[in-house]
Write a protein that binds this DNA or RNA. Structure first.
Lengths: 344, 344
DNA sequence: AAGCTCTGTGTAAACGTTTTCATTTTGAAT
DNA sequence: ATTCAAAATGAAAACGTTTACACAGAGCTT
């Protein structure tokens, strides 16, 4: 059926040299004589030899694999981050193994074990939580782990994030500048650091403008369109207490709010201003195009893998004591879903 | 720094048995005595032993890895397919390694080499093209490869797809049923089998309705929103030759067409009906909600991995001679972007 | 001509498993 | 008690590499 796959021994025999020489000819060409190098080359070509990567890795005690933990691959938000990571990794000769944790601590633990069992050389966490086995590691042990997207408070591992607090502040500020004073915020799920930070920025902006925070104007969602619709329906139901602007922690929820607003016959932005977060491709093509905080997702990924490879290459420990997390800048993209506060 | 990781030898020493016994205690518990089994268990716990997967795989001559070739991870379309594949694979104890080929034949070849070099046990192709090294394999060699999403004509490998021709036929048919006769089609890029099949279904529906095909009504896009906008602007520019309905090969392009239509002041669906393809989450939340062909992406992934695991487990050859490709059903989801043909 | 240093190559160990085969122990049957 | 089969274990080979070490020969310097 499948013809036997050529090993280094076949090549050696074919070239009339030892397997050591074959190995050297491939990996340290300068240490082998011109003549033999050529013999080996032709032997490799003749046998169709491809090194058995597993044997090689066993010997070298590495896996060439970088493990990427994401809470949900199904979520397109991660796609471009992923794309940035994969690009950098593959350039450095690493493969990216994606672990879909589904927010399940058990799965996180399973994947974290890959580091111990030599299935992965390093790990990037996109899920905002340190897997249990890692959390209880000795203090001065620095596992080859980098954190991206969701910072983990109190964790000294290298981290690359956006300034969620500030980004949310700027978004809210934009609405304030337009004259709005009743501004609602639709947040992510509780317990999520993104939620904390973004709600924080929203509150800070209000406070700075001298506006008293109103509990009923902060509504909890889960980043999805559907949760945005639900939030919108709830927030906009009562004509009297209705806000004139909504600041959302995701574009999906912003779209949801707009859907709900249209159900109530509200016009965007004349009757209600809505700002999103992320700047997914669909934000620009929506009706109306959505004002949003652009998150440089690809750069986030690129930075994360860079941080990782730098450490991995130079044996620098995986800590981030003094310099703090790497912050990649966000940008408020103003489109047509926000406008001046309607006159009463 | 990092404490030495425990090997099977450490466990053996700790339990006072041979390494062979440790291995057996773990993998064939029934062949080892109750007493030693327990000794080994406690030794494992005490040493914190985790088997070195690479050594194990080298010995077993497998990698536990399934390679998934996608043209672009950044494209959210693949996320749920991926999710379905990952679920099935991980249940069967396999990991999924994603290879982002960027439609680059060279990268495809690189990844295909993973099969030879024992970095992957099997492969799933989502990119509609057989990597070069595979294509020129001997006739009766059946590499462990499964094809999904984009069928490869003349390739006998197991395949799971939707019936693109039929799905496109049904979508066009829907517009015909609404009384439209000037129906445009925005296709995918040329050379893509999806394009061929979907254009085919569109033409077939028109022909069956006795409508002469019109070259200028078929416009080529690339599945993106932007290409939909461009197509829309071109198709709708001339008020006289303007179609009353557009059938798109992706939801993104449908959204693009709607954006363009609104630029011309056209109302959807009163002035123009638009139907999409895929049923991405945003299709339902768009304004108006988009009529589209739902593609069961997760099931597509699940079927693909099932096909693969069945073959892999039973040593059934990877061919698909008689039974043909597995077809997963699509569904036309009728929303508010399509309506009766406007009276002239 | 003897001693060097290089250069190039081969031998064999090592990486951490699993598994074949041989050997020992157990326990039942005689 | 002796024999035998079955059960449990250990020794060692094997998986395919890389690399430390040893060694041979070539070209120098004395």
């Amino acid at each position: 059926m499948t013809e036997k796959i050529a090993t280094i021994e076949d090549v050696a025999r074919h070239a009339g040299v030892s397997i050591a020489t074959v190995s050297r000819a491939v990996h340290k060409p300068d240490v082998v004589s011109e003549a033999t190098r050529e013999k080996v080359q032709t032997a490799i070509a003749a046998t169709g030899y491809t090194a058995n990567v597993m044997a090689r890795n066993l010997r070298l005690n590495r896996s060439g694999m970088i493990l990427l933990l994401v809470p949900d691959i199904g979520n397109p938000f991660f796609s471009s981050i992923l794309s940035g990571i994969e690009k950098g990794a593959s350039q450095a000769g690493y493969n990216v193994l994606i672990g879909d944790t589904q927010n399940d601590p058990e799965r996180e633990a399973t994947y974290a074990a890959y580091l111990r069992s030599n299935q992965a050389d390093a790990m990037i966490l996109l899920n905002g939580r340190l897997p249990a086995p890692l959390a209880k590691a000795p203090v001065n042990a620095t596992p080859p782990v980098v954190i991206a997207c969701e910072r983990i408070p109190g964790c000294a591992l290298p981290t690359v994030i956006i300034d969620n607090d500030q980004a949310s502040f700027v978004a809210t500020r934009h609405l304030l500048d337009l004259g709005h004073t009743r501004i609602a915020h639709i947040s992510g799920p509780s317990g999520n650091i993104l939620t904390t930070d973004r709600v924080g920025g929203y509150r800070r902006a209000l406070k700075e403008a001298g506006i008293a925070p109103e509990q009923s104007l902060v509504y909890r969602g889960d980043f999805s369109i559907d949760s945005g619709i639900a939030a919108g329906r709830a927030l906009l139901a009562d004509e009297k207490t209705r806000p004139t602007a909504v600041c959302c922690a995701s574009d999906g929820m912003a779209i949801g709010v707009i859907v709900a607003a249209k159900e109530y016959g509200l016009r965007i932005p004349e009757d209600l201003s809505v700002v999103g977060f992320d700047d997914i491709p669909h934000a620009a093509a929506y009706d109306p195009p959505i004002t949003t905080v652009r998150q440089p997702r690809r750069r986030l990924g690129e930075q994360a893998i860079k941080l990782l490879l730098d450490r991995l290459g130079s044996k620098t420990p995986f800590v981030n004591n003094d310099d703090g997390p790497v912050i990649v800048p966000t940008e408020l993209i103003i489109r047509q879903s926000t406008g001046p506060c309607p006159k009463p």
